[in-house]
């Protein structure tokens, strides 16, 4: 099975792809901090941040439709948390509705908070998607490590990233086998069968973990993972960092 949706565009060749992952990570964190600390009423600022993100997406040569599609998948999860906000904030009433015995009142203050969290969440999601689609996960992990993230954590992360595909494949195969053999039947039966499937998956995963460890031991693993490649910052990286810093600050200082 293919899970190309994860790393599909990470080997394109563009300005964004060639940047040092550390630079991308720092820029991402800075952009997120700027976005989430913007006042909810500065609409122009949000628009400018949006334009900046779309320019970066354009530079990265990743199809914009792909990024939109990915961002739309996440929106429902954001809405689940946000949906009740406009109804419960006290303030000037914008409109009220009643469904049977339930009275819902939407206030301007509530709508403001709603807009605030939604726009910030969406812009941040776009930034994160750009990072995820323009950077290989292994490079990202190496960047974490270079930035003093505990090595234990990054090693576990890289193992997980390696085995996600294997185990998801395994689970899908088991699910397909179950689906093709069980048509109809009571819901309880299905829940139980699926639970047992997870149990089997756990045992297989656990045993695989042990086997992988033994295989590593027999190849001389001593608790340390060594890699050959190191990152080097070049001129483009510095220019990008400087430009982004200036743009972010410039957008913030525009008053409207």
């Amino acid at each position: 099975m293919k899970h190309s949706f994860i790393d599909e565009y990470s080997d394109l060749d563009s300005l964004i792809h060639r940047l040092d992952p550390r630079v991308k990570l720092v820029t991402l964190v800075a952009s997120l901090l700027f976005i989430i600390s913007t006042r909810p009423t500065s609409f122009v600022t949000f628009v400018l941040y949006g334009i900046l993100i779309f320019i970066l997406i354009g530079l990265s040569k990743i199809p914009i439709g792909f990024i939109f599609k990915r961002s739309l998948v996440i929106i429902p999860f954001v809405l689940i948390i946000a949906i009740f906000i406009p109804f419960f904030k006290k303030g000037q009433v914008a409109g009220s509705y009643s469904f049977g015995s339930v009275h819902l009142t939407v206030t301007y203050e509530g709508l403001m908070v709603f807009w605030n969290v939604l726009v910030k969440a969406y812009l941040s999601i776009l930034c994160m998607i750009l990072l995820a689609t323009s950077t290989k996960f292994s490079n990202l992990l190496k960047a974490f490590e270079n930035m003093k993230c505990p090595k234990l954590m990054t090693m576990i992360l890289s193992f997980m990233h390696r085995y996600i595909y294997v185990l998801v494949d395994e689970m899908m195969r088991m699910k397909r086998a179950k689906d093709s053999r069980t048509v109809g039947g009571k819901r309880w039966f299905h829940v139980k069968a699926l639970s047992h499937m997870v149990g089997v998956l756990f045992i297989r995963a656990y045993e695989r973990g042990e086997r992988v460890y033994l295989a590593m031991c027999s190849r001389g693993f001593s608790g340390q993972i060594r890699t050959l490649q190191d990152f080097k910052l070049n001129k483009t990286d510095f220019c990008f960092l400087l430009t982004m810093a200036m743009l972010l600050i410039a957008i913030r200082t525009i008053r409207r």
Partner: peptide, 29 residues
């Protein structure tokens, strides 16, 4: 966790994380 699992921990935790991830993808009716 390192105290109990020692260097066995890295591959085991990695595979177990992948397991939790895969299990979360399974939909129950």
């Amino acid at each position: 966790a390192t105290l109990t699992l020692k260097d066995r921990m890295i591959p085991l935790m990695g595979v177990m994380s992948a397991f939790v991830f895969a299990a979360q993808m399974l939909n129950f009716p």
